[in-house]
């Protein structure tokens, strides 16, 4: 251990030396000759870098493995959570032993025809879902994800074209106030004329007014 540590320290020292050398090299002016680096040194350095690269690769692999393992565990746990309790599962397994009877029943139902279909519909199943043989159901997907997204992009396009940046829009209040301003009987902006309008703004204005009056009074 001690030896190893020593080795390490020495190597790190070496590294420092090398980097020092490098720095020196950089700092040295052009007319100075490049400092000699022995073959041994460079070999050791190369070996070290290779070792480092291998180490990192190994570590990465280990990490990835661990990650996968964790995920697998998570999945399994989720599956377990989804599964019914053990007692129920057992019951199902025991029932599965008489499949022939079930099938016969199914057939009978199919023979029953429309009546059974009606009862099925009444039992609260979706209108667009349909029972096939066995436990599979086929269901038409009414609003596909892509359909919805396409629609969204179309609506966004319309919105951005009519009301987006560069469309030069104003507010209804401003438009209506302009009429008040330009009309024969001049009056204030609609927000102030109409009592029901902009209650919040009015409350704020009232507050500000009170504060202003208060401020005026203090210096006096």
């Amino acid at each position: 251990m001690v030896k190893k540590q020593r080795g390490e320290t020495s190597s790190s020292l070496k590294m420092e030396k090398v980097s020092d050398n490098f720095n020196l090299m950089l700092e040295s002016s052009d007319d100075e000759a490049p400092e000699e680096v022995t073959f041994e040194d460079s070999k050791a350095q190369a070996l070290k870098s290779m070792k480092l690269a291998l180490d990192t690769a190994r570590r990465d692999k280990a990490l990835l493995k661990e990650k996968r393992k964790k995920r697998q565990e998570l999945f399994q746990e989720q599956k377990k959570r989804k599964l019914l309790p053990a007692a129920v599962l057992e019951e199902i397994a025991s029932k599965k032993q008489k499949p022939s009877e079930d099938e016969a029943e199914d057939e009978q139902q199919e023979e029953g025809g429309e009546e059974t279909k009606k009862t099925k519909k009444k039992s609260g199943k979706l209108a667009n879902a349909r029972n096939l043989k066995g436990k599979y159901t086929v269901q038409t997907v009414k609003h596909g994800a892509s359909e919805a997204s396409q629609r969204q992009t179309a609506e966004d396009f319309l919105q951005s074209r009519l009301y987006g940046a560069g469309s030069c829009r104003t507010t209804s209040n401003e438009l209506l106030s302009l009429e008040n301003k330009k009309g024969r009987n001049k009056s204030a902006a609609v927000t102030f004329v109409n009592k029901d309008w902009a209650c919040r703004e009015k409350a704020k204005a009232e507050k500000l007014k009170k504060r202003w009056i208060h401020k005026q009074q203090i210096p006096c």
């Binding site: 009301y163 469309s167 030069c168 829009r169 104003t170 507010t171 209804s172 209040n173 401003e174 438009l175 209506l176 609609v190 109409n194 309008w197």
Partner: peptide, 9 residues
């Protein structure tokens, strides 16, 4: 009218 979307400026 006051609740309509934005008109042009």
């Amino acid at each position: 009218q006051s609740q309509l979307p934005a008109p042009v400026r």
